Computed example of a mutant assay.
Amino acid sequence: MDTCLFCEITAGREHAYKVYDNEWVCCFLDKYPINKGHVLVTSKTHYREFTDLDEKSLTEVILAAQKIAEGLESVYNCDGITIMQNNGLFKDVDHYHMHVFPRYKDDGFSWVEPDNQVDRNEFVEVRRILKEGLS
């Protein structure tokens, strides 16, 4: 495995502006923030994808994200909080991480939803396939 930037940060070998740290997670300011206070929450153990995390790490990540969100709301008096993560080709660093950042009306960040039309039969089929996949 090549050197992982987030593993280096969590181990303290690479600089980052850490805001919260415990045995399981490391939370630090995003180098390229969407808004001031944008925090990355990452597991200290190297996992590539959300679906790879063990139960304890997953629990600690979401609890840390909640703590960060509460802190951001109290410090920045923002209009809301966005919590998101990307998998596969859609993440910039190949180490699982969650984004938590304050939001403001008209801040320029958006989620563009395609205009997909789904009929009842498609919903029924997708539900069937997913239920099979989950069992």
Rank of each mutant, 00 (worst) to 15 (best):
E23Q: 15
N87W: 00
E73K: 15
K31F: 08
V39N: 01
I129H: 02
V124T: 14
K36C: 08
S74M: 10
G12R: 04
D54T: 01
G108Y: 03
L134V: 12
M84G: 00
A11K: 15
G71D: 00
A64T: 14
S43Q: 02
Q85P: 00
S57M: 06
K105P: 03
L40S: 03
H97K: 06
M98I: 14
N121G: 02
Y32M: 09
E60H: 15
C78G: 01
A65H: 04
G37I: 11
E132Q: 13
P114T: 11
D106Y: 08
F50W: 11
H99C: 02
V118G: 02
F90L: 13
R48A: 14
S43I: 07
G37A: 11
Q117L: 10
Q66A: 10
R103S: 05
V41R: 06
G12K: 07
N116D: 02
Q85H: 13
E122P: 02
E122I: 11
Y104P: 06
T10N: 13
T59K: 12
N35K: 11
H99L: 02
K56A: 12
A64L: 05
V25K: 01
V61K: 02
D94Y: 09
R127W: 00
G37T: 12
G12S: 05
E70I: 12
N35P: 07
D92E: 14
D2S: 13
I62L: 15
V39W: 01
L5H: 09
I68D: 03
Y17R: 10
H15M: 07
E113W: 10
L58Q: 03
C7W: 07
F109S: 13
N77T: 13
L89T: 08
D119Q: 08
P114K: 10
Y76F: 15
E14H: 04
G133A: 09
N121I: 06
D30M: 12
N116H: 03
M84K: 08
F28S: 06
E14M: 08
T59I: 05
G133L: 09
Y32V: 09
K67Q: 12
T82Y: 03
V75Y: 04
V41E: 08
G12W: 02
I83K: 04
E23H: 14
Y104M: 10
G37S: 12
Y96N: 01
D115G: 04
E132M: 11
S74L: 05
C4N: 14
K131N: 15
Y96W: 07
R127L: 09
L130N: 07
V126N: 03
E14F: 02
G88S: 05
K91D: 03
N77A: 15
E73I: 10
Q66P: 02
E125L: 07
D30P: 11
E14A: 15
D79F: 03
Y17W: 06
L134H: 05
C4Q: 12
E113N: 08
E55R: 12
C7D: 10
F109V: 13
D115T: 09
D30W: 13
E60S: 14
V93Q: 07
Q85V: 00
D79L: 03
E73W: 00
Q117I: 13
W111M: 13
K31M: 14
E14Y: 03
K31I: 15
D21Y: 05
P33E: 10
H46Y: 08
